[in-house]
């Protein structure tokens, strides 16, 4: 019995670590942000009101609660304030980027999974290698590549493919390039792990039953890699929606993304409260795909393999 008790305690300890982590670094900050989003802007330190003052006891607390409101949400959801458009545009850009990532990442992952066993660790390393350089520096490097007198335009002009420099930098195209480039490992790795697990005798069985290789890809390989596709797509889509650095550095003035709107609201307009409301709503928008992702994972676990 004593053994069982100790075992139970050990299990709680192990479980406590991730939960404490989430409470301290996710739930608590989120509640603070949520609280701020219900407050009003004020010229003060901190720049919002009301502040919770517990010296008045319970009365102070109820007084505090009565001053909270959802006004900031109404403001954000007001169509004329362009936040809705920014949310929509972010979702569209993230969706298109995810599709592009899938189109680029799938062949890479497939090639890696089919490469000789001995080469696969090296290939994996190469996929992860860009992480060794700062994300910011890599995005800055794209400015040098995409600018009118950048490497890409110079190269294309030297080859005689174009006469005039292409307008790439500060366009949505640059944003897509930036997102696809930066997020590619997050797409490739789950796809690779799904494809690498695929039992190749299944393809032999398909061929044996009269199914040519291309068709076998679509009837066997692709459906069996769907968990990887889902994982990769969500791993890319979710952070891409809130992406700020890439649209800020590579996008144009009319590239509308919610991360940029939030940043503007926070730093230029100095509105902690509205930017908090934007953040909370962004989280709500993303909860849907996160829940889908967890469902997919759950199903994969239950499938037993």
């Amino acid at each position: 019995m004593a053994m069982a008790g100790e075992k139970g305690r050990g299990r709680y300890l192990v479980l406590a670590v991730p939960y404490l982590w989430l409470v301290a670094l996710f739930l608590a900050p989120f509640l603070i942000v949520f609280k701020i989003s219900l407050s009003q802007d004020a010229i003060a330190q901190p720049p919002y009101t009301p502040l919770l003052d517990l010296s008045d006891g319970w009365a102070g607390f109820t007084d505090y609660l009565s001053q909270l409101s959802f006004d900031n949400y109404a403001y954000v959801l007001d169509f004329s304030n362009e936040f809705i458009q920014a949310y929509g545009s972010s979702l569209i850009i993230a969706s298109i980027s995810t599709v592009l990532l899938l189109l680029v990442g799938y062949p890479i992952a497939y090639g890696m999974a089919r490469a000789p066993r001995s080469m696969q660790p090296t290939l994996l390393m190469l996929v992860i290698l860009p992480f060794w350089t700062s994300f910011l520096i890599r995005v800055y490097a794209w400015i040098g590549i995409l600018s009118p007198e950048g490497l890409l335009n110079q190269g294309l002009m030297a080859l005689g493919i174009i006469n005039e420099p292409l307008e790439l930098l500060n366009t949505d195209i640059a944003v897509y390039i930036g997102i696809v480039y930066s997020y590619l490992p997050f797409m490739v790795l789950p796809l690779y792990s799904a494809l690498e697990k695929l039992d190749l005798t299944l393809l032999e069985a398909a061929a044996d039953l009269g199914c040519p290789p291309t068709k076998a890809f679509w009837t066997i390989t692709f459906p069996l890699s769907l968990p990887g596709v889902a994982a990769g797509a969500l791993l890319c889509f979710i952070p891409a929606v809130g992406e700020f650095v890439i649209p800020d550095l590579l996008g144009g003035s009319n590239t509308l993304m919610i991360g940029k709107s939030l940043w503007t609201e926070f730093t230029v307009n100095r509105s902690w409260t509205v930017s908090s409301a934007v953040a909370v709503l962004l989280l709500l928008v993303l909860v849907v795909p996160i829940v889908i992702y967890q469902n997919v994972q759950q199903r994969e676990l239950e499938a037993g393999k």
Binding site: T201, L202, E204, D208, K305
Partner: peptide, 10 residues
Amino acid sequence: MMFQSYALFP
């Protein structure tokens, strides 16, 4: 062919 691992499509 009937495969040793059966190779059923999961």
